[in-house]
């Protein structure tokens, strides 16, 4: 019965060839260090799922943001878990991205033919940092407010256009409702789009070229 449905679907979708290309492909024997990339992917998925769930209740305005976060944490069933997973997932994301990158550097994996994979990886790192920066204004608590005040202020040191950058980031001279709204927009629309596009490319290259083997002493 199951195989009949599978056949029926395969005739129309051709999923078996996709399955074979992605999952049944042969790759060199590697050690546990090579799970760092997929671990990062897992945490990214975790952030997406919990992030989407958080937006069900979260309101990005200064008069409601804090209350809605409090509501999520204290009132909604499993709200503490969803928010906790998202919060700690953010830290895990940074840790895993950096560890993944260090592994690539130490094993020389960025070399031919995987240069493009590396470039997209560096962009992905910057995006992850962007997630962290825009994300922690959103609860609108003391830490959020002041750390973002300082964070945006730091950008204004840029010679020449610093003040302009500051105003663009904050949407005005001060941290305000406008800042919160645009940080929210960037955090849930702009960065996720970029993340999906770039990680799509990153994964395509990984599958297409294959993961590298452990280099021997002579390689």
């Amino acid at each position: 019965m199951g195989s009949k449905i599978a056949d029926w679907l395969d005739e129309r979708l051709g999923w078996r060839s996709v399955w074979e290309a992605i999952f049944l492909r042969k790759i060199p024997k590697v050690n546990w260090l090579f799970t760092l990339g997929s671990a990062t992917l897992f945490v990214a998925v975790n952030q997406a799922i919990t992030g989407i769930l958080l937006t069900l209740y979260y309101v990005p305005t200064p008069d409601h943001a804090y209350n809605s976060v409090q509501y999520i944490t204290n009132e909604v069933a499993a709200g503490w878990l969803i928010r906790g997973l998202h919060h700690w997932g953010a830290s895990a994301m940074v840790v895993l991205t950096v560890l993944h990158m260090l592994r690539v550097i130490f094993l020389g994996t960025y070399k031919y033919p995987r240069e493009i994979t590396w470039f997209t990886g560096v962009f992905l790192l910057i995006i992850v940092i962007g997630f962290g920066f825009t994300g922690y204004l959103l609860p609108w608590d003391q830490k959020a407010y002041w750390a973002t005040t300082v964070g945006t202020k730091i950008a204004s040191v840029t010679p020449g256009i610093g003040d302009w950058i500051l105003r663009v980031m904050r949407g005005g001279p001060e941290l305000s409702a406008v800042t919160l709204a645009r940080f929210f927009g960037v955090h849930v629309w702009v960065l996720p789009s970029a993340l999906m596009a770039l990680s799509g490319l990153h994964l395509y290259l990984v599958i297409k070229i294959g993961i590298s083997e452990m280099p021997g002493k002579d390689d």
Binding site: A39, F42, V43, N46, P62, Y66, V69, Q70, T73, W80, L81, R83, G84, L85, H86, H87, W88, G89, A92, L96, P139, W140, D141, Q142, K143, A144, Y145, W146, L175
Partner: peptide
């Protein structure tokens, strides 16, 4: 393992929320 770790962090440490922002 990562999922268990994150859930444990969420359970034991929670996600901190300080006082409401006070400019």
């Amino acid at each position: 393992l990562i999922f268990i770790l994150l859930a444990a962090l969420a359970y034991f440490l929670g996600a901190p929320l300080e006082e409401r922002a006070n400019p």
